[in-house]
Amino acid sequence: MNVKELPFSMKPVGWFQIGWSDEIANATIKPIKYFGEEMIAFRTEQGVLHVMEAHCHHLGAHLGYGGKVTGDQITCPYHGWQWNSEGKNTHIPYQENCVNKRLKTYHIKEQHGVIFLWHDPSGSAPRWGLPHMFDSFRDYLDMDESAFYPIYPHGTRLWPKEEVHPQITFENSVDSMHFRYVHNSPLNPELLEQDYRENGSVFRTLFGFRSVKHNEEITMTFDTRTSGVGCSFNVFKGSYNYRVLYCATPIDDASSDLFNTIWWPRKPGDNGDMPEDIQQRVDKEILTTVDEDLSVWRHQKYVHRPLLAKQDVKAFNALRKFQAGFYDLPPTD
């Protein structure tokens, strides 16, 4: 896909995944790049995570390569200048006064082992919250996080630097028939519901899967809450009861990182990590679904006015209208 030909930018407003919590231990730094900006994610000695711009304002050294964390301070590897978690210069080893210019910091949220970053080109603080993989579905399937195996590392997968725009990937959230043809679903998929929630920041869809063996009864449902054009929180209920977080985060004007996270229910009495037989099943049956989607996304051409089947018109147009609201937003007060 040539993302440069798309009628929308790679810098939408919203929440986007930038990693998993267990990737960043206390007092460590991880260099990252998203939305064309070099950043660092670092965890203080006390375990608090922060994200800020990557280059020291002194002579531009990258703090993610050779920088050190002490308390909540980062020491530049080039000349020992120190910056705190608020981006403030707190120490210059060879002079008494510090500089007033701050490093840019970013709003982040750690939720159920996943790291989310708020992106807004206008610089505004978060305008809305995020769905929650457990709390947002309690009226539908009330299960706590403790009922699932830890997600990292066996329930996670990253597809780095794919030439795919996030918005294209989330159009699957209203596309019932792609389950049959892309993922070879043995059940008959059907879009049952779609609506807006939480002040217009979440688009919800509910799919039902009808079983030929059981007189076309719905034997499994798939409930999706899509946040903006960055994250999709999904719950399967019925034949299987697992949860999937799919996220797409722009790196630059041409590519995105794609993230998949699986919460698989524990076996009765098992309080350990995900056993090997389930690891193999998750890797083979669940994590590979994005590989199947990518076989289409990598070569897909964006169609501004698509020819749609009658059953798809209402939901597809509603989703595109919803997605259009996350670009070029004016600054908040």
Rank of each mutant, 00 (worst) to 15 (best):
S122Y: 04
L158H: 12
I92D: 02
P189T: 10
V164E: 05
N89F: 02
D22K: 12
R305Y: 11
Q194N: 13
R127I: 09
T44F: 08
R43W: 00
H50I: 00
S239A: 15
T169Q: 12
T226P: 08
F170K: 09
H132Q: 02
A147Y: 00
R127S: 09
F322L: 08
L294N: 12
V282M: 12
Q167R: 13
V48F: 09
A25C: 00
N188I: 12
D252H: 09
I151S: 01
M220S: 13
Q311N: 08
N172H: 10
K161L: 07
E86W: 05
A318N: 08
W128D: 04
L141A: 06
K213I: 08
V99S: 04
N84C: 03
G87A: 05
T70C: 11
Y181P: 00
D253N: 13
F322P: 00
V282H: 08
L245Q: 06
G272I: 14
E292F: 11
F222Y: 15
T28S: 15
S21T: 14
Q111F: 01
R298M: 02
P331K: 15
V235C: 04
L192H: 06
D120R: 00
P268S: 14
E193Q: 09
R305K: 10
R266G: 06
F170S: 01
V51F: 08
D253A: 14
